[in-house]
Every structure is written in C-alpha cells, then in structure tokens.
Design a binder for these strands. Structure first.
Lengths: 207, 207
DNA sequence: ACCTGAACACCGTTCAAGT
DNA sequence: ACCTGAACACCGTTCAAGT
C-alpha cells in the first residue's frame, strides 16, 4: 500500500476487514496487517490497545454499516424487520467477522446505536416496561446469535451441515443435502421465517 | 495429576473442559494441558490432530451431555422444548465452550444425534418435507446461536450489556441495568420466551 | 504524534528418539 | 502404542529509540 499520509484507526479497520474477508480470521496477524499497510507490525499499537481491541473496532464498523443500511420509513414493525434483515446481510457479507464477536475485547459503541434504534421501534410497536426489555433481548440474541452460528467457520461450516443432512438419511433432507448452496439458501430462508415468527411474538407483548 | 495408566481422548477432553470452565478458553494451551495431565505438551497430538480438533471433541462431549440430560416422555412438542432447554443449560454450565464452537475444527458427531432426535420430534409434531427442514434449521440456529451470543466472552459480556442498558437512559431498562445478575436473569427469561414463540411457529408448519 | 526494530515470552506443531 | 524433548516457525506485545 502506497502511503503518503499518517494512518488512522479507520485504515487499520478497513484493511484488516478486507483481508479477513478474503483469507479468514485466523490469517490476520499483526505482522501481515503491518505489511498490508506498509508499516511495522507494531504500528497498530499506536491506535489499538490490543488485537482484541482491533477486532472489536472491526465489529463496531460492521454494526455501524448495519445502521446505515436500514431503509427509512414503513411501520414500526417494518423497521424492526428491516434492521434484522440488514443485520443478517452484513454478516452474510462479512461471515468471518461473526467469529470475531466471540473473540473481540471491549465494547462496540455502535451496538448502543443499534439498540437505541431497535428499542425506539419496539416502543413504537407499543411495548413498554419488562416486555420492552424482553422483546429487545429476544430479538437481539436471535439476530446476532443465529448469524454467528450460521456464519462462524464459513465456508467449512456449511459443508459440514450438508454432510450431516445427507448422513441423516431422511428423505425430507435429500434436497437441501445436495449442495453447499442449497444448505446456505435454506439457512437464509429459515432465518427469515424465524425472524418473522419472533417479531410476531414480540408484537403480542404490546400493551 | 497422578497417573498410573495410559491416557485416553476422554481424559484430555475432561481435564481441558474443566480447566476452560475455570480459567477461560484463552488460557488453555497445549503446555498447560500437558502439565495438568502430568505429561509432555506434545502428548495431546497422539490423540488429536490439532488443538482445533481437541476443541471440537470438547464441544462434542457437551453435545452428548445435552442428549443425556433431555428427560423422556411428554408430547412431541414437550420433547422439542426439553431438548432446547437442556441445550441452554449445558451452555450456561459451560459458557466458555460457546466460543469454542466458533473456533473448533472438524465435525462433532454428537451433533448428528441431536439432529436425529430433534427431527424425529418435529416429524411427530406433523412436519414433513421442506417445512421439516426449515423448522429444524430455525430451531437449531436459535438454540445454539442465541446461546453462543449470550455466553461468549462471559462474564465480561454481561457487564458490557449492563453498562449499555444503563447508558440507554430508558426507564424500562433501569431494573435490568442494575446488576450483572439482573441482566443474566432477564437474558435467560428472554431465551425461554423466544424459544416457545419459535416452537409455536414451528407447530404451525405441520401438515 | 507516529513509526521503527530489536527483543521477550510465549504459541501450536513436527519429528526423531525413547520405552 | 504412547510419550519425550528438542527444535521450528511462528505469535502478540513492550519499549527504547528514532523522525
């Protein structure tokens, strides 16, 4: 990378994210990151306390991109759904960052913005008090939890599932078990159906 | 550890799991595992191809314990719920293994047994064809996904959530934001509610 | 203020050798 | 068959020094 200016936190985050998308989370080391930026391996420590903090910043950037991708307008329920879909799309686009959530260090400020937005939408749906809290937690755990589980260890993960589906020898699974793509497609479909079912349930928690 | 016999795979898995429960996933190295077993650091490679394979074996043992913990009897729906609750309890008991799922290598054979059991229960609920597949995937992603998300980086994770809830300055969150325990309790409650909502939905997929 | 580069205290893993 | 122990090629991170 040709460099004619001082590096910023964002430079490290951006380059690291791109590298991780291509080569996997494990391949990211401080030394390769330094090389990519044309800088010493230890230069990163001028901007981040630790590798875990860098990973948190990468996750934070992903969260921020979710917020920006959520379309405006629609009913409160539509906005909840839109945010959960945008969240899913972000993880599908950066599957390697799913595992980073489990291994990063410190807080991700953008998570507060996502929470603010989600809570406001749930309030607009009529939730309040403990139901607001429970509704939010349910939706958050599903939106990021299911995505972590589905994306972690990609793409090996999907091939392992495919083999398992085939090994089941249950005729209903013959179709999905055919290719990694058929497993992935069905997984996305299942996410959306579960998401809508959960939003339906959360709607019943309104006052 | 006094040793008067040859070590087995199960010895490594058991000791490693106990150590990880106490000291966290990051603290587990081949050298400390060797020390714990009174054996050289490299002895583990007689039993496992890699550290990732050891982690997979630890996760597999957890999956197996879930299967054994599911109580017999009840309706098909009861059994689905029981399995999802047993799964949650296993992750609560071994929160550090949640992150291990995202970082292990290879397959976990017990996952097939869990799947067999879940699919049989869903069939008994009347699901078939694509709905059986989608219902299974939805439930699996929720049961293990939400748990990974809720348990990963424990106990820091819960303190971070607490701080975030407090920072929200939304009165409905005042109660949960009080202590880490109140956050954890509410999280468990949210898991159960979401779980039941999802099972309700899956029940509608019956023929 | 930001980066360098040597150095430290580790890692996971391999492999020849032991028993 | 299982374990040892030296060795290899790395890690993340610190810190004094440079500009």
């Amino acid at each position: 990378m040709a460099r004619n200016r001082t590096l910023t936190k964002a430079d490290f985050v951006e380059v690291a994210t791109q590298y991780v998308d291509e080569h996997g989370l494990n391949a990211l080391t401080m030394r390769v990151l330094g090389d990519l930026l044309g800088v010493d391996a230890t230069a990163c420590y001028r901007h981040f306390r630790s590798k875990g903090a860098l990973l948190a910043a990468m996750v934070d950037a992903l969260f921020l991109s979710i917020l920006e991708a959520v379309p405006e307008g629609g009913s409160a329920r539509d906005r909840v759904e839109a945010q959960m879909l945008a969240s899913r799309r972000a993880f599908v686009a950066h599957p390697q960052l799913a595992a980073a959530i489990a291994v990063s260090e410190g807080d991700t400020p953008a998570a507060l913005l996502l929470m603010k937005s989600a809570v406001a939408n749930l309030e607009a749906m009529g939730l309040s008090g403990d139901n607001l809290v429970l509704g939010y937690q349910t939706i958050e755990s599903y939106a990021v939890g299911a995505s972590i589980f589905d994306m972690a260890r990609a793409p090996d993960n999907m091939e392992i599932r495919r083999a398992r589906y085939r090994f089941l020898e249950e005729p209903a699974f013959d179709g999905v078990a055919k290719t990694v793509k058929s497993v992935t497609d069905s997984t996305e479909r299942a996410y959306e159906l579960g998401m809508r079912a959960l939003i339906d349930y959360v709607a019943t928690l309104a006052d």
